[in-house]
Design a protein around this nucleic acid. Structure first.
Lengths: 236, 236
DNA sequence: ATTCGGGTGTTAGTCCGCTAACATCCGAAT
DNA sequence: ATTCGGATGTTAGCGGACTAACACCCGAAT
């Protein structure tokens, strides 16, 4: 039995990597599915498409988006190379619809596997089944943290918490951690992720910068001081 | 291989029930874990508790809550009889903390199983493993819908979407569906679920009632007209 | 019968996030 | 070198969500 605890003594990223490898390599050995290419900005699926297949992202990056009627789009999650995409077909009625966009942020290559084929494959492969379980659990934890963030309506707190979560998930450690970590993200993307306006993100980030909780510049990377930011959140 | 598609041709509730049964009965056959009782209002875990065990709720109802520093509490999810509780230990480093409250809304009885014991059990029982996978997938889908709702900042849309989701998840069909379904929930709980103030929920619900999208009264049940509400959301 | 408590209804005033618009800065492409 | 586009910075004004406070209704408990 693969458990996250055996492999994730340190942090989430370790176990993410494990499941990536397992889920990624196995289909490759069997000539399963079709390899597809998506150019930057194109949609892998749209809201009205059926939810009947999964993808293994080989190269590139995909964002899952909600779009409201006014055309506002909000980023629900991003999926990078090596990761599974479209996994919700497991619990959804047959022929149900995606209700989201999946859009390639970059030139992307992905292996498309029909849901039924994937299920057959899992029957033969208990290890893949187990690592799929870890993948789901990780994503559930992330989705719940995401929901937590969105419950805060104040800009400072909302953005601070988002920065902390992103730093934990995708931050590159900087010099001697733990403390500051580096993030590559624009104000625009922060706005789409926190469901705020871009202008207000800029204003709020400016405030956090003055407080010494983050640092960034026109072409300097964004550096998040995690301990300070965590302290800032908790003392409010 | 258990797949949701085999069992969930109709709706989510079917497959939820399936996994409840599977996860629920199996531990019972082996005298696994300890049965615990919680009185109404008491906490099953607190934020600083370790995330090292799972629970199977036998009777009652549990809410998972975030609390901010000012003492505001927001409902992340509710877990009823027959369901698994505390499942995030699967992807979280050993000895990590809950960071939420789990509170009994009613007199509640739950089987407490150490994470390591549960894992051992799953090794012997492929069916339980598979149904756990479906449980995770279902909860991931719910968590993502939850996040979607919280991204809308307008009260009408936020509340409408929440009502629709709750109606799908926990609504009792009324007379000849599909159309109106019944929900048992107070304005206060709606407020805690949508992260709004109670007063504003009452005002907004009043508006929806005047529009004929819902109906309720001092002691009349809340009835949600799902098609009308869905139409209302999409025409904005 | 009275009291109590929980749910619903209502309002005034404040605060804060959004829209819209425009400015600045910088790298890349030509 | 110039143009262009993307990113950050800034502001005025508006709308809407919150707080706080109070009123009402009703069933349950005593």
């Amino acid at each position: 039995m693969v458990t996250a605890n055996q492999f994730c003594a340190e942090d989430h990223r370790t176990c993410q990597t494990l499941t990536e490898m397992t889920l990624h390599h196995l289909p490759g050995t069997k000539n399963l599915g079709r390899l597809r290419n998506y150019c930057k900005g194109s949609d892998i699926w749209r809201p009205e498409d059926q939810s009947d297949r999964v993808y293994f992202v080989q190269r590139g990056e995909v964002a899952i988006l909600f779009g409201d009627a006014q055309g506002h789009e909000v980023i629900l999650r991003k999926v990078g190379a090596g990761q599974l995409l479209g996994e919700l077909c497991f619990c959804v009625p047959e022929h149900s619809l995606r209700e989201t966009f999946a859009r390639a942020n970059l030139e992307t290559q992905a292996l498309e596997v029909k849901y039924s084929e994937f299920v057959n494959h899992l029957q033969d492969d208990n290890l893949a089944l187990q690592s799929l379980l870890i993948t789901f659990c990780t994503r559930l934890a992330e989705a719940e943290r995401r929901a937590e963030i969105l419950m805060y309506r104040g800009a400072d707190e909302r953005l601070s918490r988002l920065l902390l979560q992103l730093a934990e998930m995708r931050g590159h450690p900087h010099k001697a951690s733990p403390g500051p970590v580096m993030l590559h993200i624009s104000h625009d993307e922060l706005a789409q992720t926190a469901a705020m306006s871009r202008a207000h993100v800029t204003v709020t980030m400016g405030r956090l910068r003055e407080l010494g909780l983050v640092s960034y510049g026109r072409n300097k990377p964004l550096i998040v001081n995690m301990p300070h930011l965590a302290a800032y959140i908790h003392r409010r």
